[in-house]
Design a protein around this nucleic acid. Structure first.
Length: 327
DNA sequence: AGCCTATGAGTAA
DNA sequence: TACTCCTAGGCTA
C-alpha cells in the first residue's frame, strides 16, 4: 500500500490528466454502480490527498473519496502525463481541457501506469483495443477520452457531499503536505503523542494522530530516531516527537518526488540507484527481521504490534532516558 | 485447488 | 482482541 506518498502522487497524476475533464464514470465490476451513475458525465474540478485518503471533487460538488487500503491501486491507461522527479501538479484547475466521448477505436499514445503497491509503468503494444478492457476487478473507471483510470481493490470508494468530505478530513491528524504551518502542525502531533500511554509505534500508525504513515514509514521513522517503538507516547520527549514529525515531512516529500520509499539516508548516488531497483536495499529495518542491523550488526527483531509486523533494532532503538519502558 | 501474505482500517465484544 | 472487508500473487500440495 500505498502509504501517504503514493496517494499524493495519484492526486498529482489526476490533476494533470483528469481534472478539468468531463468524465465517463462506470463500475465495470458493478459494485459501485450507483455511485458511478451519480458522477457520470460530470467534470472533475480537483484531486487532492490528505494522508492516505484521496478526494476527487466534481462540478456539482460531489466528492469521490477513495482509500486504497492494503492492496488497492489505480491503473492509468492511454495518454498519461509524465510525473517526473520534482514535478509539481500544474494548474489545469479552472482551465478545462474538456474532451469526452472519444471514438471507441481511437488509439491514444499508449502507456499503462499502475499506482498503488509499488509503481510500475509499461508500454502497451500497438493495436491494443481502446478503451482497454478492464483488468481484474475494476470498482470504478474514470474515462476522459484520452486517459482511463481504473480503481481496483480499494477499502473505501464512495461519493460524499462536500460537508461529509470535510468531516472525514477533520478526523485526520496533520499531513505535512497539506498543513499551512509545518511547525504549528508539529505541535499538534507532539500534543497527541505525549498525552497518551499508548506505544509510540502505534500512535504513529494512528491516522488521527498524524496522517499518511503506514507500516514501512513507521518502522523507518522510529529507527531513524533511534527510538524504541514500545515507548509509551507520554514518555517520549517533545523534541523527539518534533524531530520525527520533521523527518516525516522529509520522507514524504522524497517519496512523492521519487515514487519510491527510500528511507536510508546513508546511501550515495550509486547506492540509491541500486536501492531504487531492489526493494531489499531500501530500508534500515523494514522486512529485515533476523538480518544484521545496518548500523550495529545486531539481529533486527520482528514482532507483532496491534496485528501489524513491527521491525526494530533492539540495540540502536532505545527508550529515552528517564522512561520506564512500555513492553 | 488451497493457503498465505501484504505498504489498512472499521466494527463488535 | 477478534472478525470483517477488499484483491492478487506466490507458494505448497
Amino acid at each position: 500500500m500505498p502509504e501517504g506518498h503514493t496517494v499524493h502522487r495519484i492526486a498529482r497524476q489526476m490533476t494533470l490528466d483528469l481534472v478539468g475533464c468531463r468524465l465517463a464514470v462506470s463500475s465495470p465490476q458493478g459494485r459501485f454502480a450507483a455511485g458511478a451513475a451519480r458522477l457520470d458525465g460530470r467534470t472533475m474540478t480537483s484531486a487532492s490527498a490528505v494522508g492516505k485518503q484521496l478526494f476527487c471533487t466534481f462540478d456539482a460538488g460531489d466528492v469521490l473519496r477513495v482509500h486504497l487500503g492494503l492492496y488497492g491501486a489505480w491503473d492509468l491507461h492511454g495518454d498519461v502525463s509524465p510525473l517526473g522527479a520534482g514535478q509539481r501538479a500544474r494548474g489545469s484547475l479552472g482551465a478545462p481541457r474538456v474532451r469526452s466521448g472519444a471514438p471507441t477505436d481511437a488509439r491514444p499514445s499508449s502507456r499503462r501506469l499502475r499506482m498503488g503497491e509499488g509503481e510500475t509503468e509499461s508500454t502497451v503494444p500497438a493495436g491494443t483495443a481502446w478503451p482497454p478492457p478492464p483488468i481484474g476487478q475494476v470498482r470504478v473507471r474514470l474515462d476522459s477520452g484520452s486517459v482511463v483510470a481504473d480503481l481496483r481493490g480499494p477499502t473505501a470508494c464512495e461519493v460524499l457531499t462536500a460537508a461529509e468530505a470535510a468531516l472525514v478530513r477533520e478526523r485526520l491528524g496533520p499531513d505535512p503536505q497539506t498543513v499551512d504551518d509545518l511547525d504549528a502542525a508539529g505541535e499538534v502531533v507532539v500534543d497527541r503523542v505525549t498525552r497518551r500511554n499508548v506505544a509510540v509505534g502505534q500512535l504513529l500508525m494512528d491516522q488521527s494522530v498524524v496522517a499518511g504513515i503506514g507500516n514501512i514509514y513507521r518502522a523507518e521513522l522510529l529507527f531513524r530516531a533511534r527510538l524504541d517503538p514500545w515507548t509509551p507516547g507520554r514518555q517520549v520527549p517533545a523534541d523527539l516527537v518534533r524531530g520525527i514529525w520533521r523527518d516525516w515531512a522529509v520522507l514524504l516529500d522524497d517519496g512523492i518526488r521519487e515514487g519510491v520509499m527510500l528511507t536510508r539516508e546513508d546511501l550515495d548516488d550509486a547506492g540509491r540507484e541500486a536501492a531504487r531497483r531492489d526493494p531489499t536495499l531500501r530500508h534500515w529495518v523494514y522486512q529485515r527481521g533476523g538480518l544484521p542491523c545496518l548500523v550495529c550488526g545486531t539481529a533486527v527483531v520482528v514482532e507483532e504490534m496491534a496485528t501489524r509486523k513491527l521491525y526494530r533494532c533492539p540495540a540502536c532503538q532505545v527508550a529515552p532516558s528517564g522512561a520506564a519502558g512500555g513492553r
